[in-house]
């Protein structure tokens, strides 16, 4: 039987010049340096977005009202990873959580730490573990840990 053939080639992703506004995520990152989470609220329907989108997806209007979001929240869904991005088995299973932070209507994802895979459950309370040295990127939030 013929084996799978692998053809090595380079694909320079920089060829593509994607333009993404990143309004919400950039605003959020700036505040994360101070270990704070900033979303925004639709003045019409009250939906709170984190990261802060520049328009309300329900009302289709521009929104500008900043909303501070707690760094505590509830696990809405989760998965336990048993393989890495290449499909190789991991030595230790990894916890990944979808969390609805208090005060936000949308969820964020992040790694779970200090919790056994078998203890993780939907409805579990968690809080953000902030990095000691914060630089304004997504790794300023190191992980979620039990509340």
């Amino acid at each position: 039987m013929e084996e799978t053939r692998v053809v090595n080639a380079t694909w320079d992703i920089s060829t593509f010049k994607f333009r993404i506004e990143g309004f919400g995520i950039n605003n959020m990152l700036k505040k994360m340096k101070e270990a704070k989470l900033l979303g925004n609220r639709c003045h019409q329907c009250g939906t709170v977005y984190l990261p802060a989108n520049f328009y309300c997806r329900k009302c289709h209007i521009a929104i500008h009202e900043p909303a501070e979001i707690s760094d505590h929240g509830e696990v809405m869904s989760y998965t336990i990873g048993y393989a890495d991005v290449r499909g190789n088995p991991l030595d230790e299973p990894r916890v990944s959580l979808m969390v609805k932070l208090d005060g936000s209507d949308t969820w964020i994802m992040g790694a779970g730490e200090d919790m056994k895979p078998e203890d993780v459950h939907i409805g579990m309370r968690v809080k953000v573990k902030w990095a000691e040295q914060r630089v304004g990127n997504l790794q300023d939030m190191e992980s979620f840990i039990p509340e």
Binding site: G22, T79, D84, R86, R94, S96, A111, V135
Partner: peptide, 22 residues
């Protein structure tokens, strides 16, 4: 998200898209 510093291996940080292949 890479520009925003996401860890694509899913080991840490916000984003952590499903932790690897998940």
């Amino acid at each position: 998200m890479l520009a925003a510093g996401i860890d694509v291996t899913g080991q840490k940080g916000m984003g952590a898209i499903g932790g690897g292949s998940a």
